[in-house]
Amino acid sequence: MRWGSFVAVGDSFTEGMDDPYPDGSYRGWADLVAARLAVDRPDFRYANLAIRGRLFPNVVAEQVPAAVAMRPDLVSFAAGGNDVLRRSFDPATLMERFDAVVAELRGTGADVVVFRFADVTARLPGQRIIGPRAAVLNRAVGETAERHGAHLIDLFADDEFRNPVMWGPDRLHLSGAGHRRVAGHVLTSLGVQSNPEWMIPPDKLPSARWLAARAADARWAGRHLAPWIKRRLTGRSSGDLVTAKRPELSPFGEIG
């Protein structure tokens, strides 16, 4: 197998929320991909630099230079989702910088994996604002991937991600089933066989009655939306006290 090292760069999507290990730490699609790649390469090494809540400029400034310095064979780059949710979202600047980052990563000789994000707007408020912004970001990712020969994982085109079972309680982060499906897509793009069960669509939940659905919305708003708004108002991030779970390249079975 070609890849002896893999560095994952990004935010909560790549850190692995909401797919917990038994100890409460997060696994996620990148760990699943790394575990599969390690099967065929005894010398395989893996780093995951992703931290929840990170905005695109922070990912670029903090994680990309570290990833470049490691000179891995494979890099995943997924960022911009948190920026789409901010009033300060600047699509032109983000698109330009996204292209520059992928060009830099490809310039090291690494294979690069990028993502068109799945549609989360049906489960979140502000769809009329978030939807067009996400479309701009996804379009830029697709164009960049084609321009630089990166592996494009098109989650937006996969209708299974419209199944609520694919998402965690906060409706923004993937569930374990969602992460497994992402890992299957990534490995397929790399030409590596994955666990076929990861791509079996889970059963959809039965539709809730109107009152039950509104009650669920109210619970969600109290548990997840209100804390998110409070962090925005106070200038805080969910990742302020979080460090990368695997900051250095190391064998997959070792803690980085």
Rank of each mutant, 00 (worst) to 15 (best):
H173T: 04
A34L: 12
V60A: 15
A122M: 13
F156T: 11
G80P: 06
G131Y: 10
M166S: 10
D170A: 02
W228H: 11
G235I: 12
L105E: 00
G168S: 04
M199N: 11
K204F: 07
R139K: 13
D31R: 14
E143G: 03
P206E: 02
L74I: 05
I255E: 14
V9H: 03
P196C: 14
P202H: 09
D31K: 07
A50H: 08
E254T: 14
L137T: 00
R116P: 08
G80D: 07
L105Y: 00
F156L: 11
Q127A: 14
A177H: 02
G256Q: 13
G168I: 01
R180F: 05
L155Q: 09
V9G: 08
R180Q: 01
L211Y: 05
A35T: 13
D154R: 03
G235Q: 00
L241C: 13
A215S: 08
F6H: 06
V84I: 04
T121K: 11
V68I: 01
G142P: 03
S88Q: 04
P91N: 00
E254Y: 06
R232S: 11
A183L: 10
L37N: 06
I130W: 01
L85S: 04
S175Q: 15
G4T: 06
P22T: 09
G176L: 07
V68E: 02
D90M: 00
A208G: 10
R162D: 12
E104I: 07
D73K: 08
R214C: 04
A135S: 14
S88Y: 04
I200P: 11
R106M: 05
D31Y: 14
L32I: 02
H148N: 00
K204N: 06
A92P: 05
A38E: 15
P42Y: 01
P57K: 02
R45W: 14
G191I: 07
F117Y: 08
T121H: 08
N58Q: 13
A34Y: 14
A8K: 10
G4N: 13
G107H: 01
R232I: 02
G191E: 05
P251D: 09
D83C: 14
K245A: 10
A218F: 10
W198T: 12
D217I: 12
D159P: 15
A157T: 12
R97D: 05
I130F: 12
P227G: 06
V165I: 08
W220N: 07
V182G: 04
D154I: 00
R87S: 10
S5H: 04
W220V: 15
P65C: 01
D23P: 05
